[in-house]
Nucleic acid binder design. Structure first.
Lengths: 230, 230
DNA sequence: CTGTATCCCCCCGGATACTG
DNA sequence: CAGTATCCGGGGGGATACAG
C-alpha cells in the first residue's frame, strides 16, 4: 500500500503517496471540515478502527499536513489542527467531492445510508441564522429504522451552537420531522428537495421553523454541484 | 483496499473508492495526459505490474471513467479513452499535482530520479514551435549514469511529432546536452532553470536551438506552481 | 503489442480488548 | 476521553512467465 511508494518524481505521485491510502482522503475531509478531536473524528469515520485512525493521524503529522497540539480549552486533551499545507488540501477535497457528486450514481451513494453519519453531518452544516434567538429543538424520526436508532434530536442553542442527541434531551420540541432515512439523506445531499419530497416527509410543530427548514438545514457542501450521472 | 468500500454516502468517500486505490491516481494522470495504449501506459507507470495495470483499467472502465475501444488507426489494437466523467477528473489531478508541487519537499521528489520517465515526460510536453521546420535531433547524455541508460535522443519531426530513442537514431545531431540526471529533472520540474544551472549543464551544437531550449523544453505541467516546502 | 495466468508473500487493516 | 496492544486472516499486489 504505502508499502514502498511509486518511485516517481511527479508531484501527483508524491502527493498520492500521502493522500491515496485507505481511509486517508475520507479522514482529510473530516479534518478539513474542522473536526479536531480523536473521538469526534471517530464519529465522522465510524467504520475506521481506532488503531488505523491513530496510524493515519501520525502519518499525516509526519507528512506535515496536521499538527497534534494540546487543547487550549481542556487540559490533558489533544487536538489535531491543519497546518498551512493541510489547509491547502481543501481544493483537493473539494475537487474530489464535486466530481463524486457529479458522476457517482446516486443509487450507489444511497446504498450507504447511515443515520448517525447523516445527523453528524447535519449538525455540522446547520445554519442557525433563520431560527429565532431561542433554544430550538428538532426531533428527527426515521420511521423505517429499528427503534434503537430511529430517533435523533438537534438542539440549537441561542448562541448558535448545535448539539446532537440520540436520547431525548427533555426540552420542549419545536419541530417534529418524520420521514425515512433515504429521503432525508437525498434531501441533505441535494439530490431532492423538501418540496419535491413533501409527500414523504411530515413536519409537525412550529410553522415558521418548518417553513424555513430548507434554509436552516444547510445541506451537504457538495449539494450545489450539478449531478450528471443518474 | 477496495476491499469493501467506506460505507459512506459522502461524495468524497464514493469518489475515493474509485480513485484512491494503489496506483490509480498515477495511472489517471497518465490517461488525463492523453496516453491511450497499454504499453504506452506501462512506460508512464513502469513500476506497476501489467497484471495490476490491467485490473485497474477494468475497474476504471466499470466505474465509467474510461472506455476501451478498438484503434481507428491500427486494427487489432485497443485504446483507452476518457469518458466525459474521466475528462472531468482533470481538475482533481491538477489539484493534487499542484498541491504536491507546492508542499512535497523537493529532496523527496528528487530521490526518485528515473531517466526513462523523465525523457518520456519530456517527449510529451515538448513544444516544437520555436524550432526550425526541419527534423531536429537532440542528444541527452547523463554523465552520472551507467552507459546502458545514460544516452537518449529526442527527434522532432517537421510535423511536430516527437520520438524518443534510447539507441542512436543515426540522424545528424543538432544539439548535444550533457548534464546529470538530477539537474535535468530539477529543471524540468521547474525547481531550477537552465540559467541557474548553467555551470552544471553543457550545450553543444546549433546555437539557436540551444538558445531557445528553455522554451521548447516545455517543462512539467506543474512547473508553474510555486514551491513552498523546501 | 496487448494483455493473462499463476504463484505466493507480506502486510494492511479489521476486530476486540484494554489502559492511563 | 484518547488512544494502545495484540491477534490474525484475507487479499492486494509484486514478480515472472507466457499466450493470442
Amino acid at each position: 500500500m504505502t508499502q514502498a511508494g511509486y518511485k516517481q518524481f511527479c508531484p501527483v505521485a508524491m502527493a498520492s503517496e500521502v493522500l491515496c491510502t485507505r481511509w486517508t482522503m475520507v479522514l482529510m475531509r473530516e479534518l478539513v471540515a474542522g473536526t479536531t478531536r480523536f473521538n469526534d473524528l471517530r464519529r465522522g469515520v465510524p467504520k475506521m478502527s481506532p488503531a488505523l485512525l491513530s496510524t493515519r493521524l501520525k502519518e499525516l503529522e509526519s507528512a506535515g499536513v496536521i499538527e497534534r497540539l494540546p487543547s487550549r480549552a481542556e487540559k490533558g486533551v489533544f487536538e489535531y489542527h491543519l497546518t498551512p499545507a493541510g489547509k491547502d488540501l481543501r481544493p483537493v477535497i473539494e475537487a474530489i467531492g464535486n466530481w463524486g457528486q457529479k458522476w457517482v450514481e446516486s443509487t450507489l451513494s444511497l446504498r450507504n445510508l447511515d443515520p448517525s453519519l447523516l445527523m453528524w453531518d447535519m449538525r455540522r452544516n446547520l445554519d442557525p441564522s433563520p431560527l429565532p434567538p431561542l433554544r430550538t429543538a428538532v426531533q428527527f424520526l426515521y420511521s423505517d429504522l429499528p427503534s434503537t436508532k430511529n430517533c435523533w434530536w438537534l438542539v440549537i442553542e441561542p448562541d448558535g451552537e448545535v448539539d446532537l442527541c440520540w436520547s431525548d434531551p427533555g426540552f420542549e420540541i419545536n419541530l417534529y420531522v418524520t420521514t425515512d432515512l433515504r429521503t432525508m439523506t437525498a434531501i441533505w445531499m441535494g439530490l431532492a428537495t423538501l418540496e419535491s419530497e413533501r409527500d414523504k416527509i411530515e413536519l409537525i410543530g412550529d410553522r415558521k421553523i418548518a417553513a424555513t427548514m430548507q434554509v436552516w438545514l444547510g445541506l451537504s457542501p457538495f449539494a450545489k454541484q450539478k449531478k450528471l450521472a443518474s
